[in-house]
Every structure is written in structure tokens, then in C-alpha cells.
Simulated scan of single mutants.
Amino acid sequence: MSCENGKNDAENGSRAAECPVVYALRIIGQKWRLPVMWHLYQRKSARYSELKRSINGVTNMMLTKALRELEARGLIERRQYEAVPPRVEYSLTARGASLIPTLDELYKWGEEQMRIDGAQRVDSPARPHI
């Protein structure tokens, strides 16, 4: 596994072969995307207000942006129910759920780093069992 720098071709502006890690991080790397996905995994589906309450520090604007971007990438699904008042729920797609084993490993790695550094968890959701 090696990644060479993906550089733009000066002549036609096309992107040279990109490192898969860099490509993956462009999809999920924004600050609020992974917390949204983690919370949706824990709850199977959630309404906007539930996500807002459970993700510490996220603003309405940033949560909306993250949800739209994740939906555009096919990682989450937005389901609108015909009800009064209108109800919208978000859930992981199969593509989004395929990232969960990796997130679980990242969680374990983070726990180990916190032990090494003597850090304490702040408002951290429990790790679900896969």
C-alpha cells in the first residue's frame, strides 16, 4: 500500500491517480460527518433534533451542511414522512454502514491514545457492539 501525491495534470486539469486514503478523507473528513454517522449507527435512525441534541457543539448550519453532504455521497438517507407536522428521519445507507467497522477500530484506537495521554472523555457516546 503506497500513495503517491495526486497532482493535477497541468495540461488538461484532470486529477492524477489519487491515494485511496486521501479520497476517503475527502468524503468523510469534514468535522461533523463522522459524529453524524456514528450517532446514526447507534440509533439506526434519528430526527434532526435528536442529532442536534446528541452531537455536542454542532451548530444548526453545520449539522444541515453535514447531513446534505453525507446524503449527496450516498452515506445517509433522508426519509420524509407525510404527517402533520412533517417528520424527517435520517439513517445510514448500506454504503454508510460499510464504514462502521472502520469507525469501530478508530474508536478503539482513540481509547488507547486517551489512556496513553491520560485524557478524559468529554460527552462521548458509548461504543456500540458490532
Rank of each mutant, 00 (worst) to 15 (best):
S14E: 03
A16D: 03
E18V: 03
Y23H: 11
I27S: 12
I28L: 00
Q30T: 06
Q30P: 07
K31M: 03
K31N: 07
W32L: 08
W32E: 08
R33W: 02
R33L: 00
M37F: 00
H39V: 07
H39L: 12
H39S: 13
L40K: 04
Y41W: 12
R43G: 09
K44H: 08
S45K: 15
S45L: 09
A46N: 05
Y48S: 07
S49K: 11
S49P: 02
S49Q: 09
E50H: 13
E50K: 12
R53P: 14
I55A: 02
I55C: 07
G57S: 00
V58H: 04
T59R: 13
N60T: 10
N60E: 14
M61A: 05
L63M: 06
T64A: 12
T64M: 08
E69A: 11
E71F: 02
E71M: 02
E77S: 03
E77A: 05
E77V: 00
Q80L: 02
Y81C: 09
Y81V: 04
Y81R: 12
A83S: 05
V84L: 14
P85T: 01
P86H: 06
V88Y: 05
V88S: 06
E89T: 12
E89Q: 10
Y90P: 15
Y90A: 15
T93W: 10
T93C: 09
T93M: 06
A94L: 05
R95W: 01
S98N: 04
L99Y: 05
P101D: 06
T102L: 12
L103H: 00
D104Q: 15
D104G: 10
K108D: 14
G110L: 01
